[in-house]
């Protein structure tokens, strides 16, 4: 069973200060750390689990700049067999729709039974590339997959709905699935595997090598800004003892504890 996994290298912003750069359309990245997008690590792990069960090859693909090769090498170390980087530096700004179309032009000629993608990228948070890619490739899909197995060329899929409810589906392959976090326990790459992956070749595809040169854009990001604060928080400052004391006082005053 051949599997393609779409992965993205993203800045880790959940616990970092995020500043807007001078263009007003991007963030200052030099003090941020970068890593594989969270749900993509679960997508890769699901691919490795399927390969362990059914055999076949895993190809990881990323549309990114040169440093995306680090991310691809980690995927190789974790069990992917082939890696492809499409050179993001060959393009001007790309929106999610253009990214989907570029991925399609490369993936359509590859061998696959399953395509996995993360359900959301933590940087731009669109949650649209996987499902768009499935439509462009004219294959079935399911988004937000939280449990996954294959029986006789059909996927047995649990999709996560609101409120903890699960939608149980039966989908024919080939198909694309966007993977939700928590579906499995992503493994760490061993040091030996990382060393071995460092020597593996990554296939690099430039814009000129694509069969298509124009990719229609759906949207343009005009500006980034700090969201207005809807509710004014009362900050309790001072040392831990002082702030705790103030909070305990508020709890008492309001009869909360």
């Amino acid at each position: 069973m051949d599997i393609i996994v779409c992965i993205k290298r993203v800045p880790q912003t959940s616990e970092a200060e995020v500043k807007i750069d001078s263009t007003g359309k991007d963030i200052v990245k030099d003090r941020l750390t970068f890593d594989t997008n969270e749900s993509d690590t679960y997508a890769l792990e699901q691919a490795v689990l399927m390969k362990e069960k059914f055999g076949g090859e895993i190809t990881v693909i990323s549309l990114g700049e040169e440093d995306a090769e680090d991310t691809l090498r980690i995927a190789l170390a974790k069990g992917a067999d082939n890696a492809i980087r499409i050179k993001a530096e060959d393009f001007d700004e790309l929106d999610a729709f253009q990214t989907s179309q570029i991925l399609k032009t490369v993936i359509k000629d590859l061998s696959y039974d399953i395509i996995f993608a993360g359900c959301i990228a933590t940087d731009d948070a669109y949650s649209q590339i996987g499902v768009t890619l499935a439509e462009l490739l004219e294959i079935p899909h399911a988004a937000l997959v939280i449990d996954f197995d294959v029986n006789e060329n059909r996927a047995d899929v649990h999709r996560e709905l609101e409120g903890g409810l699960i939608e149980h589906l039966d989908i024919s392959l080939p198909a694309l699935f966007t993977i939700q976090t928590g579906i499995n326990e992503p493994r760490y790459a061993s040091l030996i595997a990382i060393r071995r992956a460092a020597k593996k070749e990554i296939q690099i595809i430039g814009k000129d090598e694509l069969q298509q040169s124009e990719f229609i854009s759906n949207s343009v990001l005009e500006e980034l800004y700090v969201p207005p604060i809807s509710k004014q928080v009362e900050l309790l400052d001072g040392t831990a003892a002082e702030s705790s004391s103030k909070l305990a006082g508020i709890f008492k005053e309001k009869g909360l504890v």
């Binding site: 970092a16 969201p227 900050l235 702030s243 909070l247 305990a248 709890f251 504890v257």
Partner: peptide
């Protein structure tokens, strides 16, 4: 993290290390 969006939802906030605050808060309460 003073920039955490949770502070846009909160009535009261403490910007500090939770491992420092929680034991003291437990005592104060």
């Amino acid at each position: 993290d003073a920039n955490a969006p949770i502070f846009h939802e909160a009535d009261y906030g403490i910007i500090d290390d939770l491992f420092k605050v929680i034991p003291v808060l437990k005592e104060k309460i």
